[in-house]
Structures are given as C-alpha cells and as structure tokens.
Computed example of a mutant assay.
Amino acid sequence: MNFVQPIRSEEKVHAMTSFLKKRSKRNYIMFIIGIGVGLRISDILQLKKEDLLRSHIVVKEKKTNKPNRIRIPPPMRKELIEYAKELEDGEYIIKSRQGENKPIDRSTAYRILREAAEYVSLEEIGTHTLRKTFGYHFYKQTQNIGMLQQIFNHSSPEITLRYIGIDQDSMDDAMKNYKMPWMKL
C-alpha cells in the first residue's frame, strides 16, 4: 500500500476543485465532501440524497464502527443542497453509471482523484488524501489537535499529527535548516 500525503497547497486544492467541477458534478461533490468534512471514502460513497439535506452528516464509520456526526460547513452545505435537488429520494450521491442505484467503488474513486492529481502534478495521492487534506488544513487553521483527533476517532494526538503529515512537515523543515559544520558548502 502506498503512503499518501495531504494536499498542502491551497492553490492545488483550488485547481483540483475547478478541474473536477468542469468534468463532473458528481466527482466534484465527492472531492469537496472529502476535503470539507474529512470522512473516509468508504463513508462518503455510502451517503444518499437525504444525508445532504441535514445540517450534519451522520455516519457509522465502517472502520471504527463508531458513530460520527460532523457539521457541514455553510459554504459547502449550499452546494450540497443544490446537488441534492438533482437526485431522487434514496439515491446515492456518488452514483455509479453502471446498474441501478449503486455507488461507485473505491477503485473508481481512486482513478477520479488520480486524474485530477495528474492535472496539478501531484504524487503520493490516494483516496485517503481527501481525509488527510481536510485534517491538515483544519489543524493549520484551528491548531486544535484534540478536536481533530476526536473528529477522526484517533486514539492519540500523536497519531493524528502523523496522519495529517504535520510530523513530516516538521522533519522536512528541520532537515532543510540542518547545518553540517564539517562540510564546507
């Protein structure tokens, strides 16, 4: 399994958002939910029309089997409500084009993200990139690792910091500034 990183650059997030919005409303919605509320892709793919019409997204996380209730940020909520108007009651929001009412699978979600990542020259991307991107920017904005730990249902702040790449940023900065007195450069 490849290790994926959050999308640290706001410019690349904007570029991917624009790329996906131009290509497919469905794919754009998947992306903004992932980076907007930090759900796992498996939880996003199970959302139905009715889930978009509430002030909170409530899921029982597949991995942890714990309930998670996350408020939809107001700017995103408006877009989700507009998108929901295009759907039938009970319809999956990230619906497959094959078959009746089924969501796309994880590998299709990966291909969608991979294509958008290539467009903005990003590597180390996967479906978890969405969740990690949410976490990274949430932490940078709030500096509240305890709340992020709770949102992610992680057992410790250290796990959350490592998960969102903050530890990697710190190590990269330390190595960038590391002076080697024995070397004459």
Rank of each mutant, 00 (worst) to 15 (best):
Y92R: 05
G165P: 03
I29Q: 10
I29T: 02
R54A: 12
G165A: 13
M1F: 05
K62Q: 11
S9N: 15
K25T: 01
I70M: 08
I32F: 12
I93F: 03
M175Q: 10
I164C: 05
K78F: 02
K12C: 13
P181M: 02
G146D: 08
R162F: 10
N153R: 10
I33S: 01
V13E: 10
V120S: 05
H56R: 03
Q46S: 03
E88L: 14
Y92A: 07
Q168D: 14
N101C: 00
S96K: 07
I104L: 03
P103R: 09
L122V: 11
S170K: 15
I164W: 11
F152C: 11
L45N: 04
N153H: 15
H56M: 08
M147W: 04
D167G: 15
I35A: 01
K95A: 05
P157H: 09
R40T: 01
N2L: 14
R77Q: 14
M76T: 03
Q168S: 13
Y136C: 07
L161P: 14
D169E: 14
L80V: 07
S42N: 08
G126V: 04
Q46G: 12
R106H: 07
R8M: 13
F19C: 01
G38Y: 08
A117I: 12
K49Q: 09
S24M: 08
E50Q: 11
I32R: 01
Q149F: 12
Y178I: 11
K63F: 03
R97P: 00
L161C: 13
R54Y: 06
D172K: 15
E88P: 00
T133R: 13
K102M: 02
M16T: 11
K25L: 11
V58D: 03
M183P: 00
L20I: 09
D43L: 11
K22E: 08
T127K: 06
F19R: 06
E61G: 08
Q98T: 09
Y119Q: 02
I57E: 05
P181G: 05
Y92N: 02
N27R: 04
E100L: 11
I70Q: 15
R69L: 05
D89P: 14
A117H: 09
S55G: 09
K12Y: 10
E86C: 04
M147H: 14
I35R: 14
N68V: 06
L52S: 07
M30G: 08
M171G: 02
A84M: 04
I29E: 03
I81P: 01
E88G: 02
K62P: 00
R23Q: 09
P74H: 12
T64H: 01
E61A: 07
E88M: 06
P157M: 09
E10V: 15
F31G: 08
N65R: 07
H14V: 12
T129E: 06
